[in-house]
Simulated assay, not measured.
Amino acid sequence: MTTTNEKENCPADSVALGRAAWTLLHTTAAYYPDRPAPSQMDSMRLFMSTFADNYPCFKDFKQYMAEEPVRVGSRKKLSEWLCKQHNKVNEKLGKPSFDCKLVLDRWLQGSLKECNQ
């Protein structure tokens, strides 16, 4: 099924790219270990950094990472940090913020009302 902004076999526009990027990042954070090994923490730092370096439209995200480095100490810390960064982008775009207390409900457990319909 395609929307007016997403036509099959066409390049994604900035809205589709942004949605896909945030879905990937939030899902990755939601499945990150509660107690990551040092190598997992290093890998996540590198992933976030290289993702921001190489993904279109993430210039602001890279700046936010420089101001507040990624928090990789646990799933909760990473998910909440990412939610906070996403909200900074949303604010700049005039979009509503997400309640970061619900981030794992949204991206891991799927217990939000709209997920159960």
Rank of each mutant, 00 (worst) to 15 (best):
L82R: 11
S14I: 12
R75Q: 15
N54P: 00
E91L: 13
Q117R: 07
N87G: 06
L108G: 01
F47T: 06
L104M: 07
F98L: 11
C57D: 02
R45F: 03
D60K: 06
L78R: 12
N5V: 05
E67A: 12
A12W: 12
T4R: 13
T50S: 12
E80I: 15
K88P: 03
A12E: 08
Y55K: 04
T2P: 00
E6W: 03
D53C: 04
C100R: 13
M44L: 14
F61T: 13
F61P: 11
E68C: 03
C83R: 09
K92N: 07
N116V: 08
A52N: 00
L108W: 07
S111N: 14
F47I: 02
D53M: 08
K77L: 14
V72P: 02
W107C: 07
D105Q: 15
S74V: 04
P96M: 11
H86L: 09
G110K: 10
L102V: 00
K84A: 15
R106D: 10
S14D: 14
A29K: 13
F51R: 01
R75T: 11
E114W: 15
R71Y: 04
C115P: 01
K113C: 00
M44F: 07
C10I: 02
P11F: 12
M41V: 00
D99Y: 14
Q63L: 07
D34Y: 15
L78W: 08
P96N: 10
M44C: 10
F98N: 10
V72Y: 00
N5S: 09
T28K: 06
S97P: 01
P56C: 13
S49V: 03
P69D: 12
Y31S: 00
F58T: 14
K62G: 11
T23G: 04
S14W: 12
N9A: 10
V103I: 15
M65I: 11
A12F: 13
K84R: 15
K7P: 01
T4N: 08
L102C: 04
W81L: 07
E80F: 11
V103Q: 04
G73W: 05
V72A: 05
P96E: 11
A29C: 11
E68I: 01
P96K: 15
H86M: 15
Q109D: 11
V72I: 13
N90V: 08
K76H: 07
L102R: 08
A37R: 14
T28I: 10
T23H: 03
S43K: 03
W81T: 09
R19M: 06
L17Q: 12
S43A: 10
K88V: 02
T3I: 06
Q63H: 07
K77C: 06
V89K: 09
K113I: 00
A16N: 13
E6A: 10
P36N: 11
L78V: 13
K84W: 14
K7H: 14
G94M: 09
R71L: 13
S79N: 06
L24H: 00
Y31E: 04
W81C: 04
L17T: 09
L24F: 02
A21Q: 07
R19Y: 04
A16M: 11
R71V: 15
A30D: 05
F51G: 01
D60C: 03
F98S: 08
P56S: 14
T27Q: 08
F98R: 15
N90L: 12
E8I: 12
Q109M: 12
K84M: 15
N5K: 05
H26E: 14
Q63T: 11
L112I: 10
A29H: 09
T3L: 11
M1K: 06
P11H: 03
L46A: 01
